[in-house]
């Protein structure tokens, strides 16, 4: 009994770490750049499939893929913001109009990325085994890959947190999130910052996809489900808060693993019920202002 509980809790936390990482990316994109990026999950999918190809075709270690997919996703996100979203921002009559239009444009991106991937990789479910050696932990068994991805998710989250709080660029990003107009007056190049944020968000998704592919099979239409999860975690933790995203991720991971244990098939429903309750009671998130 105790072992089962420990197993459920650990499974939840392991999942939660991944949820948190992908949510941090979305939170950054919406919190700073005001783009509700519905195509977020597609960057995750790209990261996962690229890693699969590199591993199966060239034998590239998935950990090395982190260093490949992260920058690639960043570049893709940066360029997309510079071309697409910047134009939307320049032409929008009001912030509300920009939020709607950018969300619709993100839908367009979702279709484009997803179908390019389906054309390139096909619709098969792809998986590979990596570090599946079981590890004993508090009387339970877990694959080493699960523990590794969890550690990497935490590490990346921490590095990013330090980046935002300690570096000059990070502080500029936070300033832009608080008040774009004033930050602009203080000499922060707003367009550059927004593109940077969108790129960083995409990089988080890409890296998240690499980690996900180490433990779970990946395929071309996996993105949407992760986008929904990331949105829920972001609403749960409050927009733009990294500790909030981690808290939200862990809560959601735990709820997911408990519900899956009790009633398999209802995990997504449970996520959604939390989401509804939160939106109705506290739309600013648990840690939001």
């Amino acid at each position: 009994m105790v072992t089962t509980i420990i197993e459920v809790v650990i499974t939840g936390l392991l999942m939660g770490g991944l949820y948190a990482l992908i949510a941090v990316g979305l939170s950054l994109q919406y919190g700073v750049a005001r783009i509700l990026n519905i195509s977020h999950g597609e960057f995750i999918m790209l990261g996962g499939l690229t890693t699969w190809s590199l591993y199966t075709a060239l034998g590239v270690n998935p950990l090395l893929s982190l260093a490949i997919c992260g920058p690639l996703a960043f570049a893709l996100g940066f360029v997309i913001h510079r071309t697409l979203f910047k134009r939307l921002l320049d032409t929008a009559a009001s912030p509300g109009v920009f939020e709607s239009n950018s969300m619709l444009a993100a839908f367009g991106l979702m279709f484009i990325i997803q179908n390019v991937a389906l054309i390139a990789w096909g619709s098969e479910i792809r998986g590979y085994s990596y570090l599946t050696t079981p590890v004993h932990f508090l009387g339970t068994l877990f694959g080493a890959n699960r523990l590794l991805t969890f550690g990497m998710a935490l590490l990346i989250g921490l590095v990013f947190y330090l980046f935002l709080n300690l570096t000059r660029t990070g502080k500029a990003i936070r300033a832009a999130a608080q008040d774009p107009t004033t930050a602009g007056l203080m000499g922060v190049n707003i367009n550059h910052m927004l593109a940077l944020c969108f790129g960083l968000g995409a990089a988080m998704a890409g890296v998240g996809g690499v980690l996900i592919s180490m433990c779970y099979p990946v395929h071309g239409v996996m993105g949407l489900e992760y986008t929904v999860i990331a949105i829920i975690v972001v609403v749960l933790g409050g927009l733009g808060s990294i500790p909030g995203s981690f808290m939200g991720g862990f809560i959601l991971g735990l709820v997911g693993s408990i519900v899956t244990f009790l009633e398999p098939g209802l995990a997504l429903v449970a996520y959604y019920v939390i989401f509804i309750l939160l939106l109705l009671i506290r739309p600013t998130g648990l840690l939001g202002r």
């Binding site: 509700l36 509300g96 939020e99 709607s100 969300m103 929904v228 609403v235 959604y272 939106l279 739309p283």
Partner: peptide, 24 residues
């Protein structure tokens, strides 16, 4: 009653919610 973008998020997930609930 929610701001427009929250309404969009909510309705976005509604379809998935009903689908998974109904499947179960």
């Amino acid at each position: 009653r929610l701001k427009g973008i929250y309404f969009a998020m909510f309705t976005f997930g509604l379809v998935e919610l009903i689908k998974h609930f109904w499947l179960w």
